[in-house]
Each structure stands twice: as structure tokens, then as C-alpha cells.
């Protein structure tokens, strides 16, 4: 104790200094608002820095959870996107007419899958059974014929495009009503050209004449445009003309198509299916 007292009295100046300096600092911090504020602020700053560093480290540990939640949120947002909604509204135009009985009605559909470079090309559209689409209905677009419905699911349908080696469409030449069948894929894989066959030799076919649908099948109404004649000629010794038709439909940019419903199709088919009694 005595040694301590000697020590303190030997260095009394220092201890006095500590006492008085502390007193004045206390006065100073307590009575000057700016210094008080900045003192507290600086301590807050230090604490805030520490917290920030900690949270920076913690962020890495939480990355997996954050990623999961972000992915979930992305999925949820994607579900809200307009493009992921199935457009359920059926635009079906039926004309109520008392003078003329409605035979054909059209269902608009969007092309969701398309190909033109294969031997057998098909198109998928976003209309199906729920919208009244049935097998072997005709499909057209504003500029011309597209194809025939091949298979139908609840919400989708595949269309056997005109650019399919099995497709046969009954077509006629508008100017002289000569009819034949339009086909594609026989030594010709140009998506802009189809061949009109089965038109007899004696019919005069010229370039530029219009090729339209006939009403013979139940699929298409009469007179829908198909294309124009670009070349005609007889192929080695046959009795039928071989007519090249430039298709008016641009299959590579197909977006919206119409599916044709023929109200009277069943009646016609039933009638035609009756075998003559023998």
C-alpha cells in the first residue's frame, strides 16, 4: 500500500492529468451535441461494421437456401407469364343465318410446333378435343390450305401438313374446274411447290391459273386458294398432266391457322358409305 502511494505520488502529474482530462472529456461529450452525436455514431459505425462483416459471411452460408427460394420464385413468376397460360378462349365463328344453313365453322388455333424440312412434315396446334377438333378436319390459314388434322388430344392436335408425303387434297383449277389431287413429296421436297396430278391431257392448263380446293371431300369448303400453276407438262407417256403448283401458303412462317368444322360432314359420309343394294 505504501509502495503504491509512493508510486502514485511520484507520478502524480500523470494521474492528475488522467483525472482532469477524463473530467473534461466527460463534460465535453455530455455537453456538445455534435460530438455526442458523432461519438455515438462512431460507436454505432463500429458496431454496424462488425454486423455487416458477420452478415457478409453468413450470406455465403445461406446461398443454397437463397438459390432454392429464388428458383421457386422464378417458377412461380414463370407460371404467371402470359405465354405459359393456355389460351382457353375459343374463337369460333358461327354465322347464324336463316337463309343459308351454316355448313362450315372455323376454330382459330396457334401453331406451337412446325416443320418443313422433313419428308413427312407435321404441325402441332393448341386446340384439341375440348375445342371440338376431330380427326381429319381441314386446316387452313388466311393465305391458303395448310393440312389435315392427324391426331387429337385434349388440348392439342397434330396436323398432317400439306408437306407430307401421304397428304392428298382434292384440288381443281379455278378457271376450267378440272380437278385432280394435290400431293407433295414425290421427287419434290421444295416446301413452296406441290404437284397437282390426275388432270387429263386434253385440258388446257396455263401458267398463272389458280388452284383451289374442291368441295368433294368434307374437309375444305369449295374455292379456298391453294396456289398458282407454275409449270405444266406431260410426264413420259402418261395420260395425265403433271402440274407444278406454287403454294400460296408460306409454311415457314405459319403462326395462326383455322380448323374447319364441317357441320354436315357426318351426314355426307354416311350417305356416301351406303353400299348400293345388290
Amino acid at each position: 500500500m505504501r509502495n503504491l502511494w509512493i508510486f502514485i505520488s511520484k507520478y502524480n502529474a500523470f494521474f492528475f492529468f488522467i483525472i482532469f482530462f477524463t473530467c473534461s472529456l466527460i463534460l465535453f461529450v455530455k455537453n456538445n451535441s455534435f460530438q455526442r452525436a458523432s461519438f455515438i455514431n462512431s460507436s454505432n459505425h463500429v458496431i454496424g461494421q462488425a454486423y455487416e462483416t458477420m452478415s457478409y459471411v453468413k450470406r455465403y452460408l445461406r446461398l443454397a437456401d437463397v438459390n432454392d427460394s429464388l428458383a421457386l420464385e422464378n417458377a412461380r413468376l414463370r407460371n404467371q407469364l402470359k405465354s405459359s397460360f393456355y389460351n382457353d378462349s375459343i374463337e369460333e365463328k358461327t354465322i347464324k343465318d336463316t337463309l343459308l344453313n351454316q355448313q362450315y365453322s372455323f376454330v382459330v388455333a396457334e401453331v406451337v410446333n412446325n416443320s418443313i424440312h422433313h419428308k413427312d412434315n407435321t404441325i402441332t396446334i393448341n386446340r384439341g378435343k375440348r375445342h371440338g377438333i376431330e380427326k381429319s378436319m381441314g386446316v387452313i390459314c388466311p393465305s391458303g390450305v395448310v393440312g389435315i388434322v392427324l391426331n387429337v388430344s385434349d388440348n392439342y392436335a397434330t396436323v398432317q401438313s400439306l408437306l407430307h408425303s401421304d397428304t392428298r387434297i382434292s384440288a381443281s383449277i379455278k378457271e376450267n374446274h378440272a380437278f385432280g389431287s394435290l400431293m407433295w413429296g414425290d421427287e419434290n421436297y421444295d416446301p413452296r411447290i406441290a404437284i397437282l396430278k390426275d388432270i387429263p391431257n386434253h385440258i388446257e392448263v396455263r401458267r398463272g391459273q389458280h388452284v383451289v380446293t374442291t368441295g368433294f371431300s368434307t374437309r375444305f369448303p369449295t374455292g379456298l386458294p391453294i396456289g398458282r400453276v407454275t409449270r405444266t407438262g406431260v410426264k413420259g407417256g402418261e395420260s395425265f398432266l403433271n402440274i407444278e403448283v406454287q403454294l400460296s401458303t408460306d409454311f415457314s412462317t405459319l403462326q395462326y391457322v383455322y380448323v374447319i368444322k364441317n357441320v354436315l360432314a357426318t351426314e355426307k359420309e354416311q350417305l356416301e358409305a351406303i353400299q348400293p343394294a345388290k
Binding site: A13, F16, F17, F20, S24, F28
Partner: peptide, 15 residues
């Protein structure tokens, strides 16, 4: 009107 500043400085000065 700067309570403490000059007092602190004078304490330093004395030391």
C-alpha cells in the same frame, strides 16, 4: 460555448 474542449486541452498542456 465549447464545454470541455479547452479544459481538456489545458489538462494536456499542464502535463
Amino acid at each position: 460555448d465549447t464545454l470541455g474542449i479547452n479544459a481538456a486541452a489545458c489538462s494536456v498542456l499542464a502535463l
